[in-house]
Design a protein around this nucleic acid. Structure first.
Lengths: 328, 328
DNA sequence: CTGTTAGCGCCTTCAA
DNA sequence: TTGAAGGCGCTAACAG
């Protein structure tokens, strides 16, 4: 591959001039600009990123750590963050921790070795050693959708309490009393917040406070299906089920159908935190809180780039809307 | 951040010894090993990736270019490729071209500047200038799921003709004659292959060869919904619809419901190339060819790493299975 | 506006 | 087995 030296030689200018032209840093004469660009084009010159990073002591790479890229919420988030970053000349390295803390730590190490300029973090659980040392090094960080205790970084997240409030109102309006709740891990802030808001709001919305209606999964499909089945196996027969995130709702529906068959399962109404493509096709259609992964990804990337530029960035809670499909 | 020099000083050895210990390259005494590791641990030393890349003239980074990360097929593929690469010490940079050739070219440029060690490519369309120059530079490349004319690289892909054969058999067994086909862009090899196999097999399977039953989308949901609506708007009333990939099937179902309403739409059977989470929940349930994005990602990464290691890698066609949900 | 030069952090040869 | 030294490609500081 051609180096900047090759370009300079071919253009008949010094290495320094070629560098100035190609990185557009300082003033250069129209003549040398033309010649350098021409030479670069002919040689298919593409600057050596690592060399540039070494010299500049910074990169234009952001790290994005999500917990499950196969969850559409996160793939939309990732997609939006990537676009936003690219608009401002940054590349995103995407890492997928699979809701697993040790894998997350491994990726943070890779991020550190790549000397990323900033970190977009949708964390699993508590602070890990690698994260501590990254934070200590002063790396700009923003949190997406999930907060971490003891980490003081801007947080771009769904307003979980508000969203759960919409679900509670809807459950009440539908006259549900025996509502099963399939939650996520309490170690994940979204899991904790949603569960807490739900538990706190039950009574005032005429919903049974019987705790045998509560089960906790892992925010993945399989775990949620297992949780649903545990709940049914102890004889509980709810009139509605509330899944605390997208994969959880999918798993809950699968679990119900496995235990009860499709016909009986379809007599139980389902409501979800997180709206999925197919909810309108289910029988009965599934109503849901819509929260916008893309918006969070966009805002997060924007905030992080501001931090990197030395500006301030401020946490933001994103208000949700509710899609009522009860009477379709 | 600590450099290797800091580590060497703290361990009381020379820089060269520290380097040898940390990269495990040549023989070192147990004594210096212990001291260097201890010092590195205390300083939270993480090697500077760009500097290493510059010196070694190669990176341990793979580029993965997919056309739509929000398509579950690709997010599973990406996830599996990433895991496989990580097992062998490589990092994956994921880029999402959004089924758009110019964005793809932009990302290839970024990959080039990062001096990736190899490229996993699920291409959009024909060869682009950047791709040509990457190939010319001898970069190891494998193609995933989609082939490109004139590019001679190992291809790991679904056996499209075989999969379409399963669909044709199923359509015949269900007695369908008027079958709508919503295809993908003919510029994408999967689009072309699936459409070609379908068109060629219709007659022998008792399916109408009326071309007003054929429409082409863009492999994204919106385009497919529009295609479905165009088809219905010219008065065509099929008894079954065949969607040529996952998002296409989703869009087709949406389009049908929009035009015909849920009740009438549910009298049309749907079959899909690519199985989605929710097909069992649809009314009637949607049958599908199951092709395995994860397997393709895994095989692709494996093959690419072999190429990088100087070994050979061989194209592989992955046989599909069919999930018949007609009598659930 | 341009040429020259030092050095970013690391690995690897060359001597010892 | 170890220390010393050169240089990967690039940018920025300094002279001119």
């Amino acid at each position: 591959m051609a180096t900047i030296k090759d370009v300079a030689e071919r253009a008949g200018v010094s290495l320094g001039t070629a560098s100035r032209v190609l990185s557009g840093s300082s003033q250069t004469s129209p003549d040398s600009r033309a010649r350098v660009f021409a030479a670069a084009g002919e040689l298919n010159y593409v600057a050596h990123g690592p060399a540039r990073a070494l010299r500049r002591a910074r990169t234009e790479v952001l790290g994005l750590l999500v917990s499950d890229i196969r969850n559409p919420f996160f793939s939309q988030l990732a997609h939006a963050a990537e676009r936003e970053a690219m608009k401002r000349g940054y590349t995103v390295i995407l890492a997928n921790a699979n809701e697993d803390a040790s894998q997350a730590d491994e990726y943070l190490r890779i991020f550190a070795s790549q000397r990323i300029a900033g970190l977009l973090l949708a964390p699993q659980g508590p602070v890990s050693p690698q994260l501590t040392s990254l934070l200590a090094s002063g790396l700009p960080v923003v949190l997406l959708n999930r907060s971490i205790e003891g980490v003081d970084a801007p947080l771009y997240a769904t307003d979980n309490a508000q969203g759960v409030g919409l679900v509670l109102d809807w459950l009440q309006s539908r006259g549900h009393r025996d509502v099963a709740f399939i939650g996520g891990p309490p170690t994940i802030s979204t899991g904790a917040e949603r569960q807490e808001a739900y538990l706190a709001g039950r009574e005032s919305h005429g919903i049974s406070t019987d705790d045998s209606l509560i089960e906790t999964g892992d925010f993945l499909e399989e775990g949620a299906a297992a949780a649903m089945i545990r709940l049914l196996d102890r004889g509980t027969r709810p009139s509605a089920v509330f899944g605390a995130n997208g994969p959880t709702t999918l798993g809950a529906v699968r679990g119900m159908r496995r235990r009860l068959g499709a016909a009986e399962a379809s007599r139980i109404e389902v409501v979800s935190f997180d709206d999925l493509d197919w909810f309108e096709f289910a029988t009965p259609a599934i109503s849901a809180v819509k929260h916008d992964g893309a918006e969070i990804g966009r805002l997060g990337a924007h905030g992080l780039l501001d931090l990197i530029a030395g500006k301030d960035a401020f946490s933001q809670r994103i208000t949700t809307t509710f899609v009522d499909r009860a009477n379709i």
